[in-house]
């Protein structure tokens, strides 16, 4: 699947990195890094990350 985070919406809440640690990570500057092409087996956790994003900044495109 393809994952896109709208970085103009992202507010660095870090909730995605808790919900889907295989795909999203807060780096040492507490800025988001993510894998834009995660394996389809990770869909459930990516959907959870998108759901719990306080800024609703995560887009999943299949």
């Amino acid at each position: 699947m393809k994952v896109r985070v709208d970085m103009t919406m992202c507010e660095d809440h870090g909730q995605c990195a808790i919900a889907a640690p295989d795909v999203f990570r807060m780096n040492d500057e507490s800025k988001l890094e993510y894998d834009p092409n995660p394996d389809d087996s990770l869909l459930a956790e990516v959907e959870e990350a998108a759901d719990v994003c306080p800024a609703q900044a995560i887009f999943i495109e299949d």
Binding site: D12, G14, A17, I18, M26, D28, S30
Partner: peptide, 10 residues
């Protein structure tokens, strides 16, 4: 607290 620390405390 930096968001990179959240997971640890959660």
């Amino acid at each position: 607290v930096p968001a990179s620390e959240y997971r640890r405390y959660r």
